[in-house]
């Protein structure tokens, strides 16, 4: 009995070694292949802290809809219109955008104004802090990215985000919303059920040197300005220097990078 156990352990050891060698061979094979390289697109936009400055005065129902539509068409965002809604960019009223800062004598103009909401791409993002798989993380340029390949759907990030910027795919968009219609953009994926999604600040567009879709859509009105806050000459930075702007829930310390000129 003792002996057979020992020999069993030996076999186990040898086979582990074998597996190790196999993976080493695998690595060697890859090294042989490995002249291939990856590089970023030279046309891509680079920055250190991307931010959006939203000029609320310039926003009306029509402009906001243009921005929202551009984003949702490009990213194949379904519109469920129920409690399982997916939100990348959307509007809400002042009292819901800045809860606790509303009062009974609020200027009428502000009270009914549609505020554009999206992920704040916080400098200190709690969603990134809590994610157990690094499915969401912060890039060097400040964008809080989401890797739907990696997400396990625990929804910890949704509990952590104080801005309600994250949505979960409770159902499969392909078999529900896009069942009878094609996803509008055949160049961009949809999502699968069970993963979290949110605004990615058009990382895929910045990579080829294009502005975020929402910014592009309303560029005539200049209602949304995009730029690098670490660059003192960027349009966004200059605008913030000239005009008074506020951010959502600054007291929470997440340091949002979406500014509102009211």
């Amino acid at each position: 009995m003792e002996r057979s156990r020992r020999s069993f352990l030996k076999i186990l050891g040898i086979s582990t070694l074998g597996l190790g060698t196999l993976s080493a061979v695998d690595l060697l094979a890859k090294a042989e292949m490995g002249k291939a390289e990856y590089s970023p697109n030279p046309k891509g936009m680079t920055g250190k802290r991307w931010a959006l400055v939203v000029d609320v005065k310039k926003l009306d129902e029509e402009t906001t809809q243009k921005a929202i539509e551009a984003c949702h068409l490009i990213h194949n965002v379904p519109d469920y219109g129920d409690e399982e809604e997916i939100k990348w960019i959307w509007t809400d009223k002042y009292e819901h955008v800045f809860p606790g800062q509303e009062h009974a004598y609020l200027a009428e103009e502000i009270e009914e104004k549609p505020f554009l909401l999206l992920c704040n791409h916080c400098s200190n993002p709690p969603c990134v802090r809590v994610c157990p798989t690094q499915a969401t993380w912060q890039r060097g340029d400040g964008i809080v990215m989401m890797d739907q390949h990696r997400c396990i759907g625990c929804r910890y990030c949704m509990a952590a985000c104080p801005f309600g910027a994250r949505s979960f795919n409770w159902k499969d968009p392909r078999t529900t919303y896009f069942k009878d219609k094609e996803p509008p953009n055949p160049k961009y994926p949809t999502r699968t059920k069970g993963v979290v999604e949110k605004c990615n600040l058009c990382a895929e567009r910045l990579a080829v040197g294009e502005m975020p879709a929402c910014v592009e859509a309303v560029k005539d009105s200049k209602a949304i300005v995009f730029g690098d806050l670490e660059d003192p000459h960027s349009e966004a930075r200059e605008l913030l220097h000239e005009r008074f702007a506020i951010r959502r829930r600054p007291e929470l310390g997440t340091s949002p990078n979406v500014y509102y000129i009211v």
Binding site: T133, Q134, C154, V196
Partner: peptide, 15 residues
């Protein structure tokens, strides 16, 4: 979990 089959990502990418 939304993606229970990916549960082991927690160990694969320890955070």
């Amino acid at each position: 979990l939304g993606k229970p089959m990916r549960m082991l990502n927690v160990i694969l990418h320890p955070t």
